[in-house]
Design a protein around this nucleic acid. Structure first.
Length: 247
DNA sequence: CCTCGAATAT
DNA sequence: AATATTCGAG
């Protein structure tokens, strides 16, 4: 008899030094991560660690993560050996990021400059670069959307067409030079608008008034000091994190 | 060698 | 989806 089938057993090799997590876990972080669990343990995390920018708390929720980190020779070990954790871009942090980008100019903003302007020692250039990439991506989409909408509006004005907004497929990498691009998508779904550009899209106009330079938050002076982030409870926390507290 | 940007991976 | 990591060009 031949041998049976394949054995895809994956061996988790956990080499590298083990970090000693003697510190107490931060319940707040885990709570944040698992805000509300509808189904029991479905897709909570893929073995990633979450860190709160406010501190170097590391929460290891899943131990099935292949922990592999290379130690560069000239690399300072972060206080308490914090390994590589995903940076949690809190709204506050994002705000600082956006401000830095705006200050530098959207076109001139480079990770290193942004990093300096933000003054967050906890972040690395790569962190900024990654976030910046996403930021640009989102902004591009928003601008494109706006432009397309404007175009359609013009066409509608000129043609007075009823604008059949039937939902059609979008194989339109081709620009709507002619014809009517059907409301591509996004029927009534509003994605996180945290990415927006204050100059474009009214939904994003809520950003900072402008003279917020003297923000009462000394957090800018300190590297990793973010005000306590209360449990959002509602997802809208992300949608409207501006200072507009009044209803 | 370092930085940036895009692509790719987790 | 959000970040991290990798890859190639300056």
């Amino acid at each position: 008899m031949s041998a049976n089938a394949t054995r895809s057993v994956k061996v988790d090799k956990v080499d590298e030094e083990n970090n000693s997590n003697t510190e107490e876990n931060a319940p707040s972080v885990s709570a944040l991560a698992s805000a509300s669990n509808f189904d029991s343990g479905s897709s909570l995390n893929q073995g990633e660690e979450i860190v709160s920018t406010r501190e170097d708390y590391v929460v290891n929720i899943s131990s099935s993560g292949a922990d592999k980190r290379r130690k560069s020779s000239t690399r300072l070990n972060n206080s308490s050996g914090k390994r590589k954790v995903k940076v949690d871009w809190t709204p506050e942090l994002h705000r600082q990021f956006v401000q830095a980008v705006e200050q530098l100019g959207v076109d001139k903003a480079v990770p290193s400059k942004i990093l300096e302007l933000m003054g967050i020692d906890c972040l690395t250039r790569h962190n900024i670069a990654s976030h910046l990439q996403k930021y640009r991506s989102h902004r591009k989409h928003l601008l494109a959307r706006e432009a397309e909408a404007a175009t359609w509006r013009r066409r509608r004005q000129i043609c007075g067409t009823t604008g059949r907004t039937g939902k059609s497929d979008v194989n339109s990498w081709v620009v709507p030079t002619t014809g009517f691009p059907p409301v591509t998508s996004m029927p009534h779904n509003r994605p996180l608008h945290v990415w927006g550009h204050p100059s474009v899209d009214q939904s994003l106009a809520y950003m900072w008034p402008s003279h917020l330079a003297s923000s009462p938050s000394p957090a800018w002076a300190t590297p990793c000091h973010l005000p306590p982030q209360p449990p959002p409870g509602d997802p809208y926390f992300w949608y409207y994190h501006h200072q507009d507290v009044s209803v």
